[in-house]
């Protein structure tokens, strides 16, 4: 994928929060949605990369995270562009995942459904706690379960930036002065060399 295209669409948000060049030094970026069209092979490629580049003990948890975070783009974002970045430094054991889109954002989606919230950070926290814009039984688990898996299972870092809301596990949550028109989810973890049963963290 063209690095320039990625920087053109999402450069500002990466510049503010994540060092893109470092991410791409050990990783790859994939378009999931490009110019309003789904890139069907995007997620399949992501899973191939996970199998090739990450240790086997991490596959299930990464499959789960990628599955939930990418399906969120499909279900909620109405985006033009959606990108997944996967990075793993084999020497240090540090893995990073970024899922980012330029869609309606979490506060934008809540507003459309007339779901009330105090401010954009509140809307992000509500989404992470399980509030969904969809009415069917059993919705709203994607972000909340992903957060729990990262925090308690991987002992990693989890950050969501959407609208003006910035939610972090490690570090202070905050409000941006200028909104990000989309949603970014960032996961960082260090491979502990232990297996992880994801189901212990998903109930």
């Amino acid at each position: 994928m063209e690095r320039n295209e990625l920087k053109k669409i999402f450069g500002a948000i990466f510049e503010e929060f994540i060092e893109l060049n470092r991410l791409l030094k050990f990783g790859q970026s994939l378009f999931l949605y490009r110019k309003n069209e789904e890139v069907k092979e995007g997620v399949e490629k992501a899973f191939k990369i996970i199998k090739q580049e990450f240790p086997l003990r991490l596959h299930n948890v990464l499959f789960y995270l990628i599955g939930e975070l990418t399906d969120n783009i499909s279900q909620h974002s109405h985006c033009l562009s959606g990108v997944l970045v996967l990075s793993f430094d084999k020497k240090s054991g540090v893995g990073e995942i970024v899922v980012v889109d330029d869609g309606v954002s979490i506060p934008g989606a809540f507003e459309k459904r007339k779901i009330g919230f105090k401010d954009d950070l509140d809307s992000v926290e509500m989404a992470i706690s399980g509030k969904s814009t969809k009415k069917e039984k059993g919705r709203g688990f994607g972000l909340s379960s992903s957060r729990r898996l990262v925090e308690e299972g991987l002992k990693g870092d989890f950050m969501v930036v959407s609208g003006k809301g910035v939610y972090r596990i490690k570090g202070k949550s905050s409000l941006l002065s200028k909104p990000f028109c989309g949603t970014l989810v960032y996961v960082r973890f260090e491979d502990s060399a232990k297996g992880l049963n994801i189901y212990e963290y998903l109930e």
Partner: peptide
């Protein structure tokens, strides 16, 4: 080899 939680939810629905 893998089915996502979202896909299972939709499947059961």
């Amino acid at each position: 080899e893998f089915i996502s939680r979202s896909a299972v939810h939709e499947y059961l629905r």
